[in-house]
Simulated scan of single mutants.
Amino acid sequence: MDNDPSNAAPGALEAVRRFVDTDDIYNGRDALTDVASATEWLVAEGMLDKDRPMTAHDLSALRNMRDALRALAAANTLGGQPPREAVDTFNDLTARHTASVRLEVGRGATAVSLEPREDGPGGVVARLAAAVHEAVLTGTWTRLKSCDNPECRWLFYDESRSRTARWCSMRACGSIVKARRYRDKQRRGTANTS
């Protein structure tokens, strides 16, 4: 819902956030509705070469990956274990695609990254998996969260010192959810006294 640049994640994790947010639940828009729209979005994001064909099977795998990533980020929001089904889906989808370790050395520093070894939709899955891998290693993964407003679920990067943010925007979703909970509590209190 809140596409505020301050919600952006660092490095390659931003690609994961943007990919999951192709399903804009709040506004009812999905950039991965069909092969043509998915190809258009992935090409615009620089994740797919426009000459690489995508099939309905590829689209289904990308949508499953998106759902698994959203469920994993939701677990970060709640501070719990991710659902086994989401973990299994992520593992199954990423096991089909390869990446290689790339070592960069220069000016007294050494960096290592995973690079997809294929193009096309499989390369998109491998790139997303590599970004998650990097985020887990750097400790940024647990800050990628899914808005706790069930009508939103937008991914955001939690910059709060306490790492306890639950909404993509406190002034939008946070206020909506808190007001809803207050009204529900008031209704339950009224029903209990009747």
Rank of each mutant, 00 (worst) to 15 (best):
M1G: 09
M1C: 14
D2E: 14
D4E: 11
D4M: 04
P5L: 02
P5A: 09
P5K: 07
P10V: 00
L13P: 03
L13W: 02
L13S: 06
E14N: 06
V16Q: 12
R17P: 05
F19Y: 04
D21K: 00
V43H: 12
G46V: 00
M47Q: 14
D51H: 08
R52H: 12
R52D: 14
D58A: 05
L62S: 08
D67S: 10
A71T: 09
L72E: 13
L72W: 07
L72N: 15
L72S: 03
A73F: 02
L78M: 15
G79W: 08
P83E: 14
P83Q: 08
T89C: 14
F90M: 12
F90N: 05
N91P: 06
R96F: 06
A99C: 09
R107Q: 13
A109K: 13
T110F: 03
V112D: 11
V112P: 05
E118D: 14
D119T: 04
D119Q: 15
G120T: 01
V125W: 04
V132P: 02
H133G: 05
E134V: 07
A135F: 00
T138I: 10
T138F: 09
W141V: 03
D148H: 07
P150V: 02
E151A: 15
E151K: 12
W154G: 02
F156L: 03
F156D: 08
D158I: 00
D158Y: 01
R161K: 15
R161Y: 03
R171E: 13
C173Y: 00
A179Y: 05
Y182M: 14
R183N: 09
Q186I: 07
R188H: 11
T193N: 13
T193P: 13
S194A: 13
